[in-house]
């Protein structure tokens, strides 16, 4: 009898469940799904942001793939991906492990590392633009220790400005990544670490064989966030520090998208870029998730 009652109640509860999530579903449909579909549609049109859009099929994509600037900016994004993501993932991890082990002064460092996270990216960008200026403090330090040859105009070319921006982002986003790692590390049982110490395992052995495997899902989350960051959150740094220049040397997809949409009135082409960016991030995220799954993580 009880079983029957539960069976009868479940569909009714499910219906009420749908009713209660309807507002948020509607919200997501209007503000997330609909704009994505709209962008996908505009990517197949020629539209200047005003008036009517005319259907051009895949022409925007073909023109983008044929243009030199697209491959230049994609190369720049891949640079951020291949160099930036490991830097943004590994450095905070090492620091988080040290903080978790409560090295001397860990409380101070925990606050100090988080401080840059509260600064706006524009402020950080302006700060480091002045710092890396040809006549700025960084080069003055180099000159004062006799390293005049290394005193460069750091933001004047992609080969130095992109690595510089990667390190600046690392500095600025360090605190948040460290906090995420610390949350993960707090779930690692102390007795496992203590047993390893008793068995004579050194710091690196414990790091690679105990700590990292046990917080794999947290590392995966950080990598995923960093991959997304490498494609979707560089705009303000590029805008403030290099304007994407000289030429397209430090331009990334986001910045090119902004130029096309808001300076060149090529909203159709900008939409195609957005879809390409979406596809790249999606594919890389899935590959990364599969990679983790294949190496024994149960997340997948």
């Amino acid at each position: 009898m009880r079983k029957n009652e539960a069976a009868v109640r479940r569909p009714a509860e499910a219906r009420w469940g749908y009713v209660f999530i309807a507002p948020i579903l509607l919200f997501l449909l209007i503000f997330l799904v609909f704009p994505i579909v709209q962008v996908a549609y505009y990517s197949l049109t020629s539209w200047d942001g005003r008036g009517a859009a005319s259907w051009v099929g895949l022409q925007n994509y073909v023109e983008l793939f044929r243009s030199k600037e697209f491959w230049t900016v994609l190369k720049n994004n891949l640079y951020f991906l291949l160099v930036g993501v490991p830097v943004w993932t590994i450095f905070p991890l090492l620091i988080a492990v040290l903080l978790h082990e409560e090295v001397k002064g860990w409380k101070f460092f925990k606050s100090a590392f988080f401080f840059p996270s509260v600064l706006s990216t524009a402020v950080v960008g302006v700060l480091f633009t002045a710092f890396l200026n040809y006549n700025g403090p960084f080069n003055e330090i180099l000159r004062s220790v006799g390293l005049d040859a290394l005193a460069l105009d750091w933001l004047a070319q992609g080969t130095t400005s992109i690595p510089a921006i990667i390190l600046i982002i690392n500095w600025a986003g360090f605190g948040s990544a460290v906090l995420i790692y610390l949350a993960g590390l707090s779930s690692v049982p102390n007795d496992v670490q203590e047993s390893a110490v008793l068995d004579g395992a050194g710091w690196f052995r414990r790091l690679f064989y105990i700590t990292i495997p046990m917080i794999k899902s947290v590392i995966q989350l950080n990598i995923l966030l960093n991959i997304i960051y490498a494609f979707t959150s560089l705009f303000s740094y590029i805008f403030v520090m290099t304007s994407g220049g000289p030429g397209y040397e430090s331009t990334v997809i986001e910045y090119l998208l902004y130029r096309k949409a808001f300076q060149s009135n090529e909203v159709g082409s900008a939409s195609a870029l957005a879809i390409i960016m979406f596809a790249i991030v999606f594919v890389i995220s899935r590959l990364q998730a599969r990679l983790f799954a294949a190496s024994g993580n149960e997340e997948e």
Binding site: A156, Q157, G244, G245, P246, G247, Y248, E249, R259, Q263, S264, N265, E266
Partner: peptide, 19 residues
């Protein structure tokens, strides 16, 4: 504005011999 923007963008690259 689009064509002028392209000039502005590439001018620094040309004088810096990047293009």
């Amino acid at each position: 504005a689009d064509a002028a923007g392209e000039f502005y963008k590439l001018a620094s690259a040309v004088v810096y011999s990047k293009t």
